[in-house]
Amino acid sequence: MQKFTSVTGIAVPLQRSNIDTDQIIPAVFLKRVTKTGFEDALFHGWRQDPEFVLNREPFTQGTVLVAGPDFGTGSSREHAVWALRDYGFQVVLSSRFGDIFKGNCGKQGLLAAQLSEKDIETIWLIIDEQPGVEVTVDLIAKTVTAGKSGFAFEIDEYTRWRLLEGLDDIGLTLRDEARITEFEAKRESWRPKTLPAR
């Protein structure tokens, strides 16, 4: 995973609440077996509408998505994160994220930054006044700068550290392999076993 420090890019306003992962990427696209190439699937239902924000200039070039509350709720599909990433988004700002979605973001190098609802609305206003405005999201300072205004965002420290270091999860865990083996030695024999099949 690449190290993430800061991103500057066009902010895209998505003024809807409760955008579940079915809307981010409909189930038909989950049939693919690859991990990339999902850019065309992102918000597929809404993209049919020429007025949808991602179909309008300058937002087609966006890298920072500014969404309403409860973004990424519903299904656990990680494809939602792959689709956002493949499309070119590096950051999603919202006042509240679905838990699983937020976890998935951290694992794929997509920054899910949490701001207050008021700040999100302010950023929408700024974009409204200057469509195509570039915002800077700084993971070190945990700030979003839009125009002349600055906002603080929240992210849990562990995810932040891993994004900053670009660390792979499995490698990190396997540093504790001896502890895992030790734990396994003490597991009770009544616990479920799938093998041999009965």
Binding site: G103, N104, K107, D169, I170, L172, T173, L174, I180
Partner: peptide, 19 residues
């Protein structure tokens, strides 16, 4: 429920880092 990265993580380590 977990995401696909976590599926890989569990397959490889039988554990998950969780808050």
């Amino acid at each position: 429920g977990i995401g696909t990265s976590e599926v890989e993580h569990v397959l490889a380590t039988q554990t998950l880092p969780l808050n």
